[in-house]
Design a protein around this nucleic acid. Structure first.
Lengths: 161, 161
DNA sequence: GGCGATTTAGCCAGCAATAGTCTAAAAAAA
DNA sequence: TTTTTTTAGACTATTGCTGGCTAAATCGCC
């Protein structure tokens, strides 16, 4: 469990936990982990927010208060080969509404999204739903679409009815 | 009957009682339940006020004095008028991820969203999917959820199937 | 019926246990 | 040297739980 920086070591440890778990999900407590690495709790938050992002294929949920926890899930990628190519070509750092809707329609044609899902997601990335100025808006839209695609590619995502 | 915290265990127990009852109504006594879980009675009140809210689809009535009781009822939320009511209440200018997810779950329980739709929309409003700083992020999320709800309530929106 | 005692539940303040956010300094990289 | 990454620490937000006090309904006695 070597690593150049503390953040690296914490990252490796969490990844090791993930590999050791059967379902690719680990649940931990921030304070506890901080104690294990003898650092401040916010260091854990730092590692999570920089290394366990959606883009890198992780989902992080948490709860504060008594009995609080942090849950980290590896997002298993499924039909990767089928999707990755054109998803990547369509999804850069910026994504216009037109391109996003086109993407959703294609996902529909591929049978990966129902008509309802298409409509709901289109509503969510519509420019009127995103109170952000261009060009930032297209950036936000790109991130949302990435999160959607990742969710869609999860192994445990229910298949379309 | 697992549960991380005492509140979780009490919540699960009440939900189990509700499922066991034919009509979705249970009646209990605060003191009695507190004794069963070895806690102060106000802990029961706490659980009821945080987990059995109208937003989550529960109605809690009670009466004090001798023979007093607490009645918990699962309320089906079919009428669109009422849907509009609490959606408006729940959706202010700002919307936290927690509140948004709760909303999506409720919509799911009401049969207005499929499990897939819930997951996709949850991904879209996840804080990791919204590269915007707080408090702006909660504002963006509120707008997205509004757009989604509006879409859901359109007359020409396809019904779930 | 009236009225005090009893038996409930409600409310609130406060402490405990968590995690999140922000800032600045140190360290590393460019 | 300048910029980016890492780290610590102070402050904030949220959730869980207890205990004391309040309010309401019922009971029992007159």
């Amino acid at each position: 469990m070597e690593g150049k920086t503390l953040a690296d070591r914490i990252e490796n440890y969490i990844k090791w936990l993930l590999k050791s778990s059967a379902d690719g999900i680990v649940e931990l407590q921030r304070q506890e982990l901080a104690e294990r690495f003898t650092c401040v709790p916010s260091q854990i938050s730092y590692v999570l927010s920089t290394r366990f992002t959606i883009e890198r294929g992780y989902l992080v949920e948490s709860r504060r208060g008594g009995g609080g926890y942090i849950r980290i899930a590896r997002v298993p990628l499924n039909a990767e080969e089928r999707l990755k190519g054109w998803v990547h070509e369509a999804l850069g750092e910026y994504l216009s509404q037109e391109a996003a809707v086109e993407l959703l329609e294609r996902l529909g044609e591929e049978g990966l999204l129902t008509r309802r899902e298409q409509l709901l997601l289109a509503a969510a990335i519509n420019r009127q739903a995103l109170p952000v100025e261009l060009p930032r808006r297209d950036q936000v839209r790109a991130c949302i679409m990435k999160a959607i695609i990742l969710t869609l590619m999860r192994d445990d995502f229910p298949s379309a009815g």
